[in-house]
Design a protein around this nucleic acid. Structure first.
Lengths: 218, 218
DNA sequence: CGCTAATCAGTCGTAATGAC
DNA sequence: GTCATTACGACTGATTAGCG
């Protein structure tokens, strides 16, 4: 809520940068006071002073503060101004800081969520592809069996009036045959296309997340 | 909207820090922004001096600067210091600013990319699901045809020695029959499961992006 | 030094709400 | 209705910590 801070944070009036120091971080210890240069600031890092736990020589929030904020964020991502003020005084921060922290936290949370959903979707997609492959090979298998069966029908219907040997009647022979020859049916399966597709269009480090099933083909 | 008019003075406050003035902003300004609203201000505002300026405060980079930076970023996301310095002087910025801009640009580009890939993947996933459905129905169809064919074989092989009527021999009748009855085969298709899954696990505004195909079922 | 990742903050637009 | 306030989101700039 950067925009509306006017109300309760008037007194602060954005003294940008270093001017915040007092209000923001309780231990500023840093006097460097080059309040004038926004950029070019090459400060030395921590001076010996504060070390310790939440040290925060700059305007960083202390660990304790962040923890408490996290807890409250976990309970509720939104922040009504009543809660904001209460939290602020609990933490010794300006209400505005609390508001900004929540805002940023929400934004970060969204990105994280997106990443999670992406990898979940990817996993699901991969397994769907796998199932699709299985279906494709099943279709091939069935088509061959069907073609065999129809050949058989053709044969049977065309021989005029003979007695057919009883052991060739049932469909089981052809079934077994096809099942035995089932290996090469993957020829038409698009698994390899999809495979390369997946790995070419993504450059994320977790790209290999859910591809375990592929080992079944190797 | 009248809503955001109140920011004017906020800007002024920052700007009065002055530190920015030189390095930042060549005026982004173009103020046509808030022009003439008679905003009733009631806050104590900052000190102020700045009355006269027509707006133009904000440390934002000018459009021209951003465009040039974008172009260079498009060519190469990395930034060697030679290039950085050259760019900086071209733009009238601190080299440090250029570096920061590139850093942020890279970081944010990643998120954007992730979002793009997410929606691309989702689209692909949906079409894969669709294809899988088609395959499932094809499998059902084939299984029925096969079963018909085997019944036929059974019949043919069991009738002793008759002359089979020529018009019932071919397999085409059963094929046509199945194709005609193709509609209800979706009964076992998991499309609805998947459908609800997709819409429950995502809350993005572009969730409906690639579901056009679903209209084929409605 | 440069980079990434994380963090903090300011700006703008805008929707929801309440007062006049 | 208009106007103001407030809260939020998206975007952007800047800082810091840590790695190589």
């Amino acid at each position: 809520m950067p925009a509306n801070m006017n109300r309760e944070d008037d007194h602060i009036v954005h003294f940008s940068q270093s001017c915040y120091a007092d209000a923001y971080t309780q231990m500023v210890t840093q006097q460097g006071d080059q309040t004038s240069k926004p950029i070019r600031r090459r400060r030395k890092k921590s001076k010996g002073g504060n070390a310790g736990d939440g040290g925060a020589k700059k305007r960083k929030l202390s660990e304790k503060q962040v923890n408490l904020l996290e807890v409250h964020f976990g309970n509720e991502h939104k922040l009504e101004s009543e809660r904001k003020d209460r939290l602020a005084s609990e933490l010794g921060l300006e209400p505005r800081q609390v508001a900004v922290w929540f805002q940023n936290r929400r934004a970060r949370w969204k990105n994280k969520k997106l990443e999670e959903e992406y990898s979940a979707l990817k996993k699901e997609h991969e397994s769907t592809i796998f199932e699709k492959c299985q279906l494709e090979s099943e279709v091939l298998k069935l088509k061959e069996r069907l073609s065999e069966a129809e050949k058989e029908i053709q044969r049977l219907s065309q021989l005029p009036a003979e007695t057919v040997p009883s052991n060739s009647t049932s469909s089981s022979p052809s079934v077994d045959t096809m099942a035995g020859a089932g290996q090469p049916v993957l020829g038409e399966c698009e698994i390899m296309d999809t495979y390369t597709d997946i790995f070419n269009t993504t450059t994320f480090y977790y790209a290999h997340a859910g591809m375990d099933w592929i080992s079944q083909y190797m």
